[in-house]
């Protein structure tokens, strides 16, 4: 690759070194390569650093929702759970909202994550309308969590549940 010619220096200043002129193309290519290498050396670890632990796979855990005997057999009950969790470098109390209902009078339970599947607001149970309603964009779900109307793309997330020693647990 032919390097563009350098303009001559003012005569009172002196002259360009002949040797450097002849090697200019090579030097430019070397500089480019070094700069490129340097950029990569900085950029690749930086990107990895910035991604950090963002992409760690989700883990689930079981949280206690309450004694089976205390849960209403018919009504949809809002249960706020709290559990200790790690938030980056911080130990925090993680809180969430789960709606518990039973279709067979308190033998088996359904637990629905209260997070609207549209944009993540927390839905409210409206006993009168018999529906979960999202306050943000008026998404409606049935008691079972299926979408009735509004923008939600899919049903409320159903959580796995189990009963242990008379206590209802859900997997979040």
């Amino acid at each position: 690759m032919a390097a563009p010619k350098l303009p001559p220096l003012p005569t009172d200043k002196g002259v360009w070194d002949e040797h450097t002129l002849s090697r200019r193309g090579f030097l430019e290519a070397t500089l480019g390569a070094l700069a490129g290498l340097g950029t990569l050396l900085v950029a690749v670890p930086s990107v990895r650093f910035l991604i950090g632990n963002s992409l760690e796979p989700s883990t689930t855990k079981w949280v206690e929702l309450g004694k089976v005997a205390d849960l209403p057999a018919a009504a949809v009950t809002q249960v706020n759970y709290s559990t200790r969790a790690t938030d980056a470098w911080r130990q925090v109390t993680q809180r969430g909202t789960v709606y518990v209902s039973s279709a067979d009078g308190g033998t088996t339970f359904t637990a629905l994550d209260g997070t609207c599947t549209h944009l993540g607001c927390i839905v409210q149970w409206d006993e009168g309308k018999g529906a979960f309603i999202c306050p943000c964009h008026s998404g409606y779900y049935t008691r079972e969590g299926e979408v009735i109307s509004g923008p939600p793309p899919h049903r409320l997330r159903q959580l796995a549940v189990k009963v242990q020693d008379g206590t209802l647990l859900a997997e979040i």
Binding site: G66, K67, D70, N80, T93, R95
Partner: peptide, 28 residues
């Protein structure tokens, strides 16, 4: 934060079905 969004339900009068959870305190 919890009192500001839930009021007295954030302390003693929570809506929990569990009588056990009617404790008169907070988790913090």
């Amino acid at each position: 934060a919890t009192f500001a969004s839930k009021g007295c339900a954030a302390t003693c009068h929570n809506s929990s079905a569990k009588q056990d959870e009617w404790w008169m305190g907070s988790d913090s």
